[in-house]
Amino acid sequence: MPPLLDVRDLEAGYGPINVLHRLSLSVDPGEIVAMIGANGAGKSTTLMTLSGVVRARAGRIVFDGKDLVADRVPAHMIVRLGLAQSPEGRKIFPRLSVLENLQMGAFTRTDPDGVAKDIEKAFTMFPILRERQHQAGGLLSGGQQQMLAIARALMARPKLLLLDEPSLGLAPQIVVQIFDVIRELNRQGVSILLVEQNARMALKVAHRGYVLETGRITFTDKADVLLHDPRIRAAYLGE
């Protein structure tokens, strides 16, 4: 089977500065792929380039058979192709209610019945969101906002879900809950590209992993191989 996402020699950055240098990676259908790396390595830039918010300067991003770079697919069309993101820092709409935030996640959809069903599914997966559905998104706790960000991204019914630091700043028991959700989503067939500074958790849940250092992929292997590699353990697992 061809990969769902195939990135080749990607270059992207801000102003005169290139952040990503000939970055290549892939995600197969049904996979969870982790990307780990230090703060500032370019993880968020990678995801934002995939989502079209940051412009690719060179290289290819082939998603589901379509080259997003060559075809100059604008950001607002990318989610329609089945690529959704839960961004770093959640980026919840603070003055929209929880329910309205979820509805925004389905902005591109034209099947109100399907949307209603998926909102119900989101509430089943995250019961706290049902309880808080009429509250403003900005009033939720960090963990609740993270759940909302993931649920909102899922409302687009993505084939590939990009998750940027879903564990950042959350209490340990909430982190465990979030990773359970990631596993469950994958079981339901969603492919996931997971960016994390919490390398241990990420590599435990992932099938494969990439290590990003100052915009370059320096290691890639099966997740459990990376998890036991002494260099990775020293640099990213605090050993």
Binding site: M48, S51, G52, V53, P74, A75, H76, M77, I78, V79, R80, A84, Q85, P87, K91, I92, F93, P94, R95, L96, E100, Q103, M104, G105, F107, T108, R152, A153, A156
Partner: peptide, 19 residues
């Protein structure tokens, strides 16, 4: 609705598929 979302977080609005 797209206007309200864009006003509150333009990046998130783009990620929702808003032009």
């Amino acid at each position: 609705k797209a206007m309200r979302a864009t006003a509150q977080n333009p990046t998130a609005a783009q990620l929702m598929g808003i032009n």
